[in-house]
């Protein structure tokens, strides 16, 4: 259920670089809407029910909270709706900006959850292990840290449970004590694990000159096509942004670039770029169906 993951790492990386950078910098409401929709759709496609629950249980409240907080601190804008108790004005522009910034944050978080599901650490090491060995090792270890920590925590907690140190049930004080002992075990484990990983990589000659490394990735026709599509769409959108085709400002008055066929084409290109993995997924499913029906 994850065809895009089987593509060459450079294709995955190019896609996520474009999409995450664009999500961060494009403040046009249409672009934000596209980004939010696609990130939600793709994360649900990748992680299923878990992602859907996370998105609607945590991301949506966070979106609302961030949108509400902005007008409390930002009072710029020409259309005054009313006055806050402090005496500063409440403006339409600050509310609009708050909503947009909140949508941006949520969609970027969502894109990163997709990134983690697709770009595994071996892919990252494959891409950057040669260029910056120590940096890529540290980065991949850092990115792996939280999920690995969670997993180990579960193991340790279960082991502690077996010897009667339960973190559920008993009195508050006892639970806190057991929790602290688990935490101390975890910290020790994390430090030791990091040192061990580094040592083991070093003993294998990681990052030495002239050393080759095995990889299972080949850049075939499929990757070539995807890469061309991603870079063409990405460059078209980026050029459009620099040419002012996606201009939108919130302060002091809300003003958008005129909606012309050109800007609509930019929106479509951006949408196509964001939807690319989902399109690939759908096409793959259709392909599989047709092959199956032939048998």
């Amino acid at each position: 259920m994850n065809t895009f993951k089987t593509y060459h790492p450079i294709v995955n990386f190019a896609y996520f670089t474009f999409v995450i950078v664009f999500s961060m910098f494009f403040m046009h409401p249409v672009c934000l809407g596209i980004s939010l929709f696609c990130s939600f759709a793709y994360s649900i496609l990748l992680n299923g029910k878990k992602a859907a629950r996370f998105n609607f249980l945590y991301m949506l409240p966070m979106l609302l909270f961030a949108a509400l907080v902005n007008p409390a601190f930002n009072h710029e804008g020409a259309s005054i709706l009313g006055y806050l108790p402090g005496g500063n004005p409440l403006t339409l522009e600050s509310i609009a900006y708050g909503v947009s910034a909140a949508v941006m944050i949520v969609s970027v978080i969502c894109w990163f959850s997709c990134y983690n599901a697709v770009m595994t650490s071996d892919k990252f090491i494959y891409l950057f292990g040669r260029v910056a060995p120590s940096l890529s090792l540290v980065l991949s270890m850092t990115l792996r840290f939280v999920p690995k920590f969670k997993e180990q925590m579960r193991v340790v907690a279960n082991a502690q449970k077996c010897i009667g140190r339960d973190v559920t049930g008993t009195s508050m004080l006892q639970r806190a004590k057991n929790g602290v002992s688990i935490l101390s075990i975890m910290v020790t484990w994390a430090l030791e694990n990091a040192v061990e990983t580094a040592d083991s990589m070093k003993s294998r000659g990681y990052g030495l000159k002239g050393r080759t490394s095995f990889s299972i990735y080949t850049f075939d026709l499929r990757d070539k096509r995807a890469m061309i599509a991603i870079s063409l769409l990405g460059i078209y959108v980026a050029v459009g942004k620099f040419a002012g085709g996606l201009y939108f400002r919130y302060f002091p008055t809300i003003k958008s670039v005129a909606i012309t066929p050109y800007s609509i084409s930019l929106f479509f290109a951006y949408f196509a770029l964001c939807m690319l993995p989902i399109i690939i997924e759908i096409r793959e499913a259709q392909n599989w169906k047709s092959i199956k029906s032939k048998i």
């Binding site: 710029e76 020409a78 403006t91």
Partner: peptide
Amino acid sequence: LLREMKKNKIHLEFEN
């Protein structure tokens, strides 16, 4: 200043 700007619907932002 605050009262007059409010009365005349002119935007004013200040910080304490």
